[in-house]
Nucleic acid binder design. Sequence first.
DNA 1: CCGAATCGAGAGCAGTGCTCTCTGTTTGAC
DNA 2: GTCAAACAGAGAGCACTGCTCTCGATTCGG
Lengths: 237, 237
Amino acid sequence: MAPRAASIRARVRAEMTDEIKASARRQLATGGANLSLRAVSRDLGMVSSAIYRYFASRDDLLTALIIDAYNAIGEAAETADASLTTRSDPVARWLAVAHALRAWALAHAPEYALIYGSPVPGYAAPADTISPASRPILVMGLILADAHAAGLLSDDPAGRPEFSADLRAELRQVADRLAPGVSEAAMARGMIVWTQLFGALSFELFGQLNNVIDAREEWFDHQARMIAGFVGLRSPE
Amino acid sequence: MAPRAASIRARVRAEMTDEIKASARRQLATGGANLSLRAVSRDLGMVSSAIYRYFASRDDLLTALIIDAYNAIGEAAETADASLTTRSDPVARWLAVAHALRAWALAHAPEYALIYGSPVPGYAAPADTISPASRPILVMGLILADAHAAGLLSDDPAGRPEFSADLRAELRQVADRLAPGVSEAAMARGMIVWTQLFGALSFELFGQLNNVIDAREEWFDHQARMIAGFVGLRSPE
DNA sequence: CCGAATCGAGAGCAGTGCTCTCTGTTTGAC
DNA sequence: GTCAAACAGAGAGCACTGCTCTCGATTCGG
């Protein structure tokens, strides 16, 4: 679509778009989800109406930030998993990914709030966001699948849970997409711990741990280890 | 402080305050966290500046709504627990409370977002909110304590986890306040499942389950049952 | 009964998202 | 090269927001 040698205008436009997003991210840190386009425009030394040459509306800017955030946290998880020297221990991989997710969330709290916090009022997430949104959880799916293949994913000790046909089918669909070969029950456990993990991040970032737990890092690590056991992840002999 | 027979003015003022909050709650349903004082005033047929006779600022109104929301969800949990015919089964109590929390959250989604979602930008929670905020979790503490006293709270099968002195002390403090007699490890498990529970609610309410799980009620019930087992809650013989 | 407290109305200020119009520049086809 | 078309930014303006201030009208307590 773009010409081989990007025209000056196209390149300037791309840079300008990035600058707007960068400034918006900065504003996000102080102002939260209701960022001001006019503040962004002031920050960039332009007039507010000029922003509309790059983003059709404030929601469009937010959408761009949301997509970037999903990709960023997804990439953080992926590189944490990929950069392990040995990938044969599912528990170690799980812990590495969990801590990487937390580190990203702490370093980018307002962006985390944007994607995992309460949705902004009138905002409806467009379809462009659903693909990047699944990127982080794909990492967990891979760990589960590898653990299963290596015989390091224990079954539910309490026996097979009973699912309705509907729920079983949905769990099957999730498993087929994220962690082929894994049973519905194991996939359910995976989603439960995934939910717990992000619950822990939200509790920490949204102030629910204030005046309760100060040893945040250790507390998170404890949670991650405990729920790794809950899923049934085991380290090799 | 108020005279025995409330003066007309005092009573009207109380009613007016309630009407403002009620209208604000309605606005919250459509507009999200950035509710408009002017819209509230229009809804009540008054001029915007009149609102300031009742609430010093928009944040003050939000604070009042937050306190009400904490009390409401806390009361929902309390009555769910208290209205059980038999209270000897900790698992049944846990499930009843969990479903009551979910029911309240679904029925009052914007208020749930207000207290458990991303904090509103410039808003700093005043001290008045911390007491009502702990009301829901007190219910879980009671269930844990009763289960422990009745010998229905299993120990961690994986052996005693190791905590640093700091974290152990903090867990001890939480246990002493919420569930006296319960060990630090069990209290930690309780907080983990509490985190999971609200993670599940946030996932469901904030759209993270869209296009993934449609059997919401059953999925939540499954999660609640599984994590009840994780804490170590058992039903009596 | 009367001064004081309270209440609502209205105007106004600074800020917001967004639209429209107008100028100047860059682009790509001829 | 030329030139119409696309594009980028500036500026004014609209309707909205939270909030402050002033000014009458009402109600309160001593």
